[in-house]
Design a protein around this nucleic acid. Structure first.
Lengths: 189, 189
DNA sequence: ACCTGAACACCGTTCAAGT
DNA sequence: ACCTGAACACCGTTCAAGT
């Protein structure tokens, strides 16, 4: 609900940012040309200089998210440590930690039901993340077939948790996150 | 997309019926006061004599569906035979068979994501159906704990199938339905 | 009891015109 | 290059007035 003064000319980026905040807070239907224009302090007409239509904005938001949601996080984690065990702990605490963009994940997934482009993007992101965790587990010493299984399990917990939170459920505690990590990395059964 | 002539005065029922068709064909967002009015050959104002607002129509549709989707089907099945095995076969072929209201199920479920009343209705319907199938399996001789398990499994297949169909997947064949039934009713492992 | 018609608010989209 | 302002279409909602 923040308002911006139109001190300088706007770029595509400004609209995408504002759109992402609306998405996280109100879902895909909350991303409205008129509302965003008011927030940014310009007329609706201005929007159509930057984008062909509302759909083009959604697509730009999707691109932005794909970059940040996967590669950006993976890069951060990779920079922090060489040790796969540490990486997994850091990653888990990032993805389960509450942020301003908490609603983003769940709301993209919901939007994917109606919009096949969104669905395709989700699918790609899911696969990248699951593969990354799978590789971490393999590096830790978990056999491949179990690593596949467990990385998938972790991801289901992530989706379940974000969806649940979105519909009023409580967040997972740090302790619960740690328990999951130790389950995933156990080398027996 | 059918049009009706306003030969007689309309009742709530007419609006609910038209709404259900729109829901099945176009999803919850396709249920529009203006569109329905045109289809029924009356003005938008007419709608607001029957319903407080669009939301009240959705609620009436939900009530209609709850009646028909569960109890009506169960009554039909119960009337056809006393034998639980036959009942299960008949039921499976009803719920997996393509009908004009095929989209209804999946679209209610999708609407449930945004509307907690819809979500609650889905939950109740799910529970009733699963319990009914569970009881059939128990009558056939499947142990209770396995019956719970298998009725739940069948229901997941049902949801998966309808959702999949809604997003462009193919329907299940009669043969596949029969295979599921024989799996569920097997008395070993 | 059921419906019309006009009005209003909200929002997506277009476009000529402005700086 | 970026924005305004007015216009139009679409749709939910209200309401006085009609039969």
């Amino acid at each position: 609900m923040r308002m911006f003064q139109a001190m300088a000319k706007l770029s595509k980026k400004n609209w995408v940012e504002a759109g992402m905040i609306s998405l996280a807070e109100k879902g895909i239907d909350g991303v409205k040309v008129e509302t965003l224009s008011k927030q940014l302090g310009v007329s609706k007409g201005s929007f159509y200089w930057h984008f062909k239509n509302r759909d083009a904005l959604i697509e730009a938001m999707l691109d932005d998210w794909q970059e940040r949601a996967t590669h950006a996080i993976i890069n951060i984690v990779d920079d922090i440590s060489e040790d796969p065990m540490e990486r997994l702990v850091v990653l888990s605490n990032i993805i389960f930690r509450p942020t301003r963009f908490d609603g983003t994940e769940a709301n993209w997934r919901i939007a994917g039901i109606k919009d096949s482009r969104v669905a395709a993007a989700c699918k790609g992101i899911d696969a990248t993340r699951i593969a990354y965790v799978r590789d971490l587990l393999v590096s830790i010493g978990v056999p491949l077939s179990q690593s596949k299984h467990r990385s998938h399990l972790l991801y289901m917990v992530l989706i379940g948790n974000t969806t649940w939170v979105q519909t009023g459920g409580r967040k997972m505690s740090k302790k619960e996150v740690n328990e999951i990590v130790s389950m995933l990395t156990s080398l027996d059964g």
